[in-house]
Amino acid sequence: MFTLESGSGFWNPILWILVLLITFLLFYGIRGFGKSTYKKGTEQTKAFLSGNKEPSPEEMHIKASNLYWGFTTSMKSLYSVLRKMHTGNTSDYILWFVLVLAVLLLILGVM
């Protein structure tokens, strides 16, 4: 019931959970050897920004459009092609349909 066979390998979620659980317990045990110095409600819990005042939540909010900036910038040329492809015009949607239809007709027609 638990073991999924693919013909060339297998997957057992229960085994995976057991491994995760043992790993967690191991790390939790190691953590227990540490020295607890954390005190709630003291200076320790406040953000240290090199002496600068903590900005308001709006100023600290990193917007979704700023995430993965590096990836999207490095892939600029690919994105410009994809953006040109996604025009939002219904006639272009149909054009893609006709294009794929023509290419496949050509392939199967020739074959």
Binding site: M85, Y93, W96, V100, L101, L104, L108
Partner: peptide, 21 residues
């Protein structure tokens, strides 16, 4: 021809790229 038409039409209805827009 019928096979290609069915593949492309149903593929478009299923959201297959590049007819996914």
């Amino acid at each position: 021809i019928a096979l290609v038409i069915l593949l492309v039409s149903l593929g478009m209805k299923a959201g297959l790229a590049p007819m996914h827009m």
